[in-house]
Design a protein around this nucleic acid. Structure first.
Lengths: 183, 183
DNA sequence: TATAGCATGTAATTAGTTACATGATTAA
DNA sequence: TTAATCATGTAACTAATTACATGCTATA
């Protein structure tokens, strides 16, 4: 019984009152997916495993012919979640970003194409920031009004980080333009 | 023949003059691993596949009884690398960060433990920034003096982003302390 | 002379994705 | 009535990691 980050994702969502596998995936798609992506084919087996281990309890929430399960944390599940929140250990953070990989090898490009690449990366950061502010943060702020504040904290950290990257890349673009003029 | 980011990592490293599988992994460990992690068990089969497809050529660089292969790009390999650098398409950026996942669910913690968690995240950002500046950036700056500038650009982007996260989390910590006093 | 590092590779395992399969309900 | 969404799950596949296996060379 080794729990992975995706196990804690499920436990945490259940604690926030998100009770079905489908709903967990929906919630994750507008919140945790930016730093812990998941899929339905991961969530359902995860719920089954957590139930076998006594960390969650499955109730029935079917309506008419449509089957729906309502899961909730057991007290054991709650204490496992709390223990994890208190613990220091975490799997090494990993990032996979093909855009930055391109930038790393950009010396192979002509000056003009280098600028185009940086411009694309900046535009990508701008779009991510805008999406975060317009689509993700408002949902988190609704939860904030209900007393659940950290999803909004994380959404602001995300949006602000994208904004920072956008500014940083804009400055790089200016530097590249400056070099060009002085050449 | 579909090339993945790790294929371009290998092609890019070869173009920079890093010629053996072992050396590619060594170089990646102090540069690209922050946004495109890889392992020897990925690099060796990748080189074999790229050779079968005529994108790289394998030469012999053995010394005495120690076998060593020196790979280099073919002209086809070089043009494939260039085409990728010019292209817009990229696999969706993905991040896995257990620390931020904890922060997302931090409402379950007591105020004091929330502050401790934020402090740990800030310390982690500080350490990453310091490592980037002390260990990674100097290596990239050595390459910069040889006319390869983008590894240093990427290292600075990384270090500055960690520094930004550190400041952001420090401000959050202050806010949490302020709330405590006013309670 | 033994340990660390150089060097290459494969095998076994794990994690994670997409595709498949099924069916109910709601809104256009 | 048809498409979108809700809802659950499995199967097949892909990507990626760790562990295994081997052997040379330089340094302490």
């Amino acid at each position: 019984m080794t729990l992975r980050p995706s196990s804690y994702l499920v436990l945490g969502m259940l604690r926030l009152g998100v009770s079905s596998g489908y709903a967990i995936k929906q919630a994750a798609d507008v919140s945790t997916r930016f730093f812990c992506p998941t899929s339905l084919a991961q969530v359902y087996p995860e719920l089954a495993q957590l139930e076998r281990e006594g960390l969650v309890r499955r109730g029935d929430d079917s309506q008419g012919g449509r089957v729906r399960h309502a899961y909730e944390l057991t007290s054991k599940g709650e204490s496992v979640l709390l223990r994890w929140l208190h613990s220091e250990h975490h799997a090494p953070t990993q990032v996979r970003d093909e855009g930055v990989l391109r930038l790393f090898f950009a010396d192979a490009l002509q000056a003009e194409d280098q600028r185009a690449l940086v411009r694309r990366l900046r535009e990508r950061a701008r779009a991510a920031k805008a999406h975060m502010r317009a689509k993700i943060l408002p949902l988190a702020e609704a939860a904030e009004k209900e007393g659940v504040g950290y999803p909004a904290v994380v959404a602001r950290l995300g949006a602000d980080s994208y904004a920072y990257a956008e500014r940083w890349l804009a400055r790089l673009e200016e530097d590249l333009d400056g070099d060009e003029l002085s050449d």
